[in-house]
Amino acid sequence: MSEPLDDPRLRQGSDLALDAEKAEADGDATGGRALYAQAAALYVAAARDLTSLPRLRAVLAVSGVCLAARGGRFDRAIEYAERFLAEPGSLDPEGAEELETLLRSYRRALPEKDPEAPAPPKEHLLYRSRQETRERAGRAAA
C-alpha cells in the first residue's frame, strides 16, 4: 500500500505552491494567486480521499484551506473548511479547531452580503478588489 504522503497530488501541489512563491517574488501577483488556488485544490482533493488518519487529514486540509486563501480565493477557502468540518471525527480536534479559526477569519475578510442583491461573481472578492486598488495606486504613483 502506498503511503498517504506519497500521493502524487501532494507533490504536484507543492510544486505549484513553490511556483506561486516564485511568481510572487518576481512581481507576478496575479499569476501567483492562480497557482496557489490550483495547489489548494490538489491538497484538498488528497485530504478528502484520506478517510483514515485524522491527524494527517487535518494537516492536509489546513494546508489546502490556507493555500486557497493565499490565492485570494476566500470563497473557496471557506467552502473547503466548511466541508471538512461537516464531517465530525474526520479531523483531529486540534486540526478542527485550526480550521474553525481560519473559517472565522476568512468570513470576516469577505464583504457583508446584501440579501436583496444578486449573487456576485466569485471572482469579485474583497481580496482581489483590494489588490487591484493597490496595483492601480502603484501604477498611478509610478
Partner: peptide
C-alpha cells in the same frame, strides 16, 4: 521531505 508547509505552520 514530503510537502511545502503552509503559511503559519
Amino acid at each position: 521531505v514530503k510537502m511545502r508547509a503552509y503559511h503559519g505552520s
